[in-house]
């Protein structure tokens, strides 16, 4: 499957563009368009059910759009749980399900109209992602924090055992790193030289009870991961060009004996001015006026669901 030409935004199978073209303005504009639509989806989904987590979803939108529409080799049309020969992604901070669902549907994993069922009875789009309802694109349940990196390690190890050279990507909240299981997994990945893992930390400095520094300071996360044996990158998660560039660099660094981490600086609520710079919008929904305000800031580029 690798080597199929990329058809950004209009294809079902996505494969990365050759290095050198990543600064292509047209591609960057296309990714920005998708991101704008995904942000609209997020606020509309959360407003529609008056429940969910918009803040972290908006902050991680550029990352997930870049990942699914540019960086990863993946097959949206023929989703298989095993994902043999494909890059796979695990969302560890499952509460940012709105952005995950929007990106999956916009990438072609399931009908876009299904976004309207988010968090409603009998939906496949559960409050936190699950395999239980058979939603294509989801390979593990997440929500109870701190478990995704372990799963990714197992998945990456299985890929190595299967001589499958594809990559395992993950996303974690920064507050989530307070869960001890992460540090078990960090040790495991380095010990077993899982150099086919690229884990990104959403470094927005916020958690439910306040700033991460106030709630439970974690010090220098990058240095800690490096001490645990990981090769680290940093990027601005709300600058699409930087996200695409650093993801490309991280990908190029795979296969060198070390797992790879990316400390991704983001703004919680990015793209909607009144949601930015606060942890207030971690887990609450906008009202009608706030929705209108937010949508006024986000272009409808691909058509609302």
């Amino acid at each position: 499957m690798v080597g199929i030409p990329s058809h950004l935004g209009d294809g079902i199978f996505f494969s990365p563009l050759p290095l050198g073209s990543i600064y292509n303005t047209t591609i960057m504009e296309k990714l920005q368009e998708i991101a704008s639509q995904v942000r609209r989806d997020i606020v509309r989904m959360v407003h529609g059910v008056q429940s969910g987590h918009p803040g972290g979803s908006l902050g991680c939108t550029d990352f997930l759009v870049a990942l699914y529409f540019e960086t990863m080799n993946h097959n949206a049309e023929n989703f298989t749980m095993e994902g043999h020969g494909e890059d796979v992604f695990y969302l560890s901070n499952g509460h940012i399900s709105p952005v995950f669902y929007s990106v999956l549907s916009r990438a072609g994993y399931f009908p876009i109209d299904e976004l309207s069922t988010f968090r409603k009875l009998n939906t496949r789009l559960q409050g936190h992602p699950t395999t239980h309802e058979g939603l294509p694109g989801v390979r593990i349940a997440s929500g109870s924090l701190g478990q995704g990196l372990s799963v990714a390690c197992g998945s990456a190890m299985a890929k190595k055992m299967n001589d499958d050279a594809s990559i395992v990507y993950t996303l974690h909240g920064d507050g989530e790193l307070q869960e001890g299981q992460n540090w078990e997994a960090l040790m495991f990945a380095a010990h077993h030289k899982l150099d086919n893992v690229i884990s990104t930390i959403d470094f927005n400095g916020q958690q439910i009870d306040g700033s991460t520094d106030d709630v439970m300071s974690m010090g220098d996360i990058k240095a800690k991961w490096e001490t645990f044996g990981w090769q680290m990158f940093e990027m601005n998660g709300n600058d699409m060009a930087d996200v695409v560039k650093v993801l490309g660099e991280a990908k190029a660094a795979t296969g060198n004996g070390k797992p790879i981490g990316i400390l991704m600086k983001t703004e919680m609520g990015a793209g909607v001015d009144f949601m930015e710079g606060t942890h207030k919008w971690h887990g609450i929904a906008p009202n009608d006026d706030q929705l209108a305000d937010a949508l006024g800031q986000l272009s409808e580029t691909l058509g609302d669901y």
Partner: peptide
């Protein structure tokens, strides 16, 4: 696969391995 004294991680690693058909 040796997981060290880290059972929580071992359970997650096992879950992830099934995704690769193990």
């Amino acid at each position: 696969v040796q997981c060290g004294i880290a059972e929580a991680n071992m359970m997650g690693v096992a879950a992830g391995m099934t995704i690769g058909g193990k």
